[in-house]
């Protein structure tokens, strides 16, 4: 792969991080859906938003992969670990503990090693 020779493609990275941000909200919407009575209006509203965000993410992700190596895309995807903790703490009262941060710090290099091992 000669992707290293290419100039840093700012636009693709901006799009990638925009859809990763959307993706990070899917879990939040799923959780919010079940905080309402099952099959109530709010339940379907949040479940619908989860599916919508996931759909937009999946469609654009396919396009981003045409412009970026899989390794780079998946490594950047690990940012969702940070977003997940942030949204959990901000919107749902999840606690951020030292061992959650430590666990994330161990998972991250693991993901990078696995995705880069296919090159």
């Amino acid at each position: 792969m000669d992707n290293n020779k290419k100039k840093f493609d700012f636009k693709t990275f901006a799009v990638l991080h925009f859809i990763l941000l959307l993706y990070s909200f899917v879990g939040v919407f799923m959780k919010l859906a079940f905080q309402n009575e099952m099959f109530s209006f709010q339940f379907f509203l949040f479940a619908g938003l989860a599916v919508l965000f996931l759909g937009i993410y999946a469609l654009i992700w396919q396009q981003v992969l045409k412009k970026l190596p899989l390794t780079v895309a998946f490594t950047n995807k690990a940012i969702c670990i940070v977003w997940g903790m942030l949204w959990g703490a901000l919107f749902l009262g999840d606690q951020i503990t030292w061992y959650k941060i430590l666990g994330s710090l161990i998972v991250f290099p693991g993901v990078v090693l696995v995705v880069s091992s296919n090159e």
Binding site: Y99, G103, I106, V107, F108, P109, V111, L113
Partner: peptide
Amino acid sequence: GMILILLGIVVF
């Protein structure tokens, strides 16, 4: 990498 991921999940 896979061992690190599993370890991270356990620690988390």
